[in-house]
Design a protein around this nucleic acid. Structure first.
Lengths: 137, 137
DNA sequence: CTTGAAGCTATAGTGGCTAGAGGGATTATA
DNA sequence: TATAATCCCTCTAGCCACTATAGCTTCAAG
């Protein structure tokens, strides 16, 4: 049996976050010690590791909730699980594209400034004047 | 003189967001009509466009506040403005790197599943077993 | 003068935590 | 056994940048 602190150390999920997940219903309320402290089993550690892993991959709490529900019924087809992963992959790819555009734009702004005063500053100028942007963003 | 709705249409910033920016002190409270409605001048439109542009580039409200303050004193050196842009560029580049790792990992997970039931599902399996991951993430 | 769109304020909700207050429990050492 | 250090408890509020809702007033067109 693990205390919440031990569980935290083993999974890398912070203590208040574990309590938050319990409140959100991602993990069920565990047993308590005589003095009302949470005591976790190995099964709960694995469930939390699953959640942690999903969050690290950027899945939302709701995505993870759904995957946890799916994983409880091993005979069902896994189409839904695949869909969650594939949808999320599409979101990630979209984000990457967007950020690359921003990177390009910011690199232009940040390196373009040769003036020494705000009055001549390209950073300020660029923000004031959207027309200077290469991409529509 | 523009109503808040006109200002919204011209800048692409939603009406409640404009009021929010006013509350946050990014734009000063504008004149009011006889019936207490906001009336904006061209100068305010430009300031809002500046804010919008900064937000589009992912700058925080605080970054933008600082840039707005800097832009009000044209004789100061622009080192600080450059720093804000450069720092943000670094943050963006970091995010891109992180997302690329996630993309790789998710692509592996989402395409790896050949089973037909949850019991054999690679998506679920991968989340349960961090050891399958190529990268440390 | 009526009607419908647009505007007003104030409050609460979003996601995923994080921080703090004010206490009780457990554990290691003296 | 006493005590001190550390951990844990609940509850509430705060973070960011909005977004939504409710209940009201004002404006502009016909």
């Amino acid at each position: 049996m693990l205390s919440i602190g031990e569980l935290s150390r083993e999974t890398g999920v912070k203590v208040p976050t574990i309590r938050y997940y319990e409140q959100m219903g991602l993990i069920t309320a565990p047993e308590r010690s005589a003095g009302n402290q949470r005591r976790y089993s190995r099964a709960e550690l694995e469930r939390l590791a699953f959640i942690r892993h999903g969050r690290d991959l950027g899945l939302s709490i709701e995505d993870i909730r759904e995957l946890l529900e799916l994983s409880a019924i091993p005979d069902q087809t896994c189409a839904q699980a695949n869909k969650i992963a594939a949808d999320h992959l599409a979101v990630i790819r979209e984000k990457i594209l967007r950020l690359k555009k921003l990177e390009k734009e910011l690199a232009r702004i940040a390196t373009g400034c040769k003036g020494h005063t705000i009055g001549e500053c390209y950073v300020i100028e660029s923000l004031s004047n959207h027309g200077l942007c290469a991409d529509g963003h």
